[in-house]
Amino acid sequence: KLNEKEKELCQMVRLVPGAYLEYKSALLNECNKQGGLRLAQARALIKIDVNKTRKIYDFLIREGYI
């Protein structure tokens, strides 16, 4: 299910792929509902370490998901 970049992200932030996909889905759904997504909203949405949230958020922006 994951592409190579997503696999690298999961290894870097030490997330299991299932958890990453869950977080990605939640962030994309919220982004679609709101018409955009700020980091503060992402942090409130997924209750994990803020540094991990930041890396996931930055990755999703860089890859054009949000």
Score class of each variant (00 low, 15 high):
21 L>Y: 04
11 Q>M: 08
57 Y>L: 09
34 Q>P: 07
25 S>K: 15
57 Y>A: 04
25 S>V: 07
34 Q>G: 10
4 E>G: 05
22 E>S: 12
21 L>F: 04
24 K>F: 01
23 Y>V: 13
12 M>A: 13
2 L>N: 02
34 Q>H: 13
36 G>W: 05
36 G>E: 10
8 E>W: 03
36 G>M: 10
6 E>F: 10
24 K>G: 00
13 V>E: 12
56 I>E: 01
17 P>I: 00
1 K>W: 09
30 E>Q: 11
65 Y>N: 06
16 V>L: 13
34 Q>F: 11
63 E>M: 05
61 I>E: 11
40 A>T: 13
62 R>G: 09
36 G>Q: 08
16 V>T: 15
19 A>Y: 06
60 L>Q: 06
22 E>N: 11
34 Q>I: 07
26 A>F: 05
38 R>H: 13
6 E>S: 01
5 K>D: 05
25 S>L: 09
62 R>F: 01
2 L>S: 01
41 Q>E: 14
48 I>Y: 11
53 T>Y: 02
26 A>D: 02
55 K>Y: 09
16 V>Q: 15
10 C>P: 00
55 K>E: 12
58 D>F: 03
64 G>D: 07
2 L>T: 04
31 C>D: 06
45 L>F: 05
36 G>L: 07
2 L>R: 01
12 M>N: 14
23 Y>K: 03
13 V>G: 00
56 I>H: 02
29 N>K: 13
25 S>G: 08
16 V>P: 15
59 F>A: 02
33 K>Y: 12
7 K>T: 11
10 C>Y: 01
65 Y>L: 15
11 Q>H: 10
2 L>D: 02
37 L>Q: 01
30 E>F: 13
23 Y>L: 09
24 K>L: 02
47 K>D: 14
5 K>M: 05
3 N>R: 04
38 R>C: 15
20 Y>V: 00
33 K>Q: 11
16 V>C: 14
4 E>L: 10
17 P>T: 01
62 R>W: 01
17 P>N: 02
15 L>R: 00
63 E>S: 07
63 E>L: 01
45 L>R: 08
23 Y>A: 13
44 A>Q: 14
10 C>V: 07
6 E>P: 00
9 L>W: 01
33 K>I: 10
66 I>Y: 03
56 I>W: 00
15 L>K: 00
12 M>R: 14
42 A>I: 06
62 R>P: 00
4 E>P: 12
28 L>E: 09
2 L>A: 04
22 E>Y: 05
65 Y>V: 15
30 E>Y: 12
63 E>D: 07
26 A>V: 14
8 E>D: 10
62 R>E: 13
17 P>C: 04
6 E>R: 02
58 D>T: 06
24 K>V: 01
28 L>T: 11
57 Y>M: 08
60 L>W: 05
49 D>W: 09
27 L>I: 09
28 L>M: 15
53 T>R: 08
62 R>L: 04
47 K>V: 00
30 E>N: 05
32 N>C: 08
34 Q>C: 12
23 Y>D: 03
31 C>P: 03
27 L>N: 00
23 Y>C: 10
29 N>L: 07
4 E>T: 09
25 S>W: 09
14 R>G: 15
14 R>M: 04
13 V>T: 12
3 N>S: 15
14 R>Y: 05
23 Y>N: 02
41 Q>R: 12
64 G>K: 11
32 N>A: 14
22 E>G: 08
4 E>M: 10
1 K>A: 09
32 N>H: 12
2 L>M: 08
2 L>H: 05
17 P>K: 04
35 G>K: 07
58 D>L: 03
3 N>K: 07
9 L>C: 00
42 A>Y: 00
24 K>D: 01
5 K>V: 04
28 L>G: 04
13 V>R: 03
24 K>Q: 01
33 K>T: 09
37 L>P: 06
53 T>F: 07
42 A>H: 03
61 I>V: 14
43 R>G: 08
10 C>Q: 00
1 K>V: 12
23 Y>P: 03
1 K>Y: 10
61 I>K: 13
64 G>L: 01
41 Q>L: 03
14 R>W: 01
13 V>S: 04
35 G>Y: 01
4 E>W: 10
9 L>H: 03
50 V>G: 10
46 I>D: 06
26 A>N: 08
60 L>E: 00
43 R>E: 15
5 K>E: 06
37 L>E: 05
63 E>G: 06
60 L>S: 02
59 F>L: 04
14 R>Q: 14
39 L>F: 15
59 F>I: 03
43 R>Q: 15
13 V>Q: 06
42 A>Q: 04
66 I>G: 02
1 K>E: 14
34 Q>W: 10
16 V>D: 15
3 N>P: 03
37 L>K: 06
34 Q>K: 14
57 Y>N: 07
36 G>D: 07
8 E>N: 10
21 L>T: 06
63 E>F: 04
22 E>K: 12
4 E>H: 05
61 I>D: 04
25 S>F: 09
63 E>P: 04
38 R>G: 14
41 Q>H: 08
5 K>W: 02
41 Q>F: 02
53 T>C: 11
17 P>V: 02
51 N>D: 15
53 T>S: 10
18 G>W: 07
20 Y>R: 01
57 Y>K: 06
1 K>R: 10
57 Y>H: 07
2 L>P: 02
4 E>Q: 11
5 K>L: 05
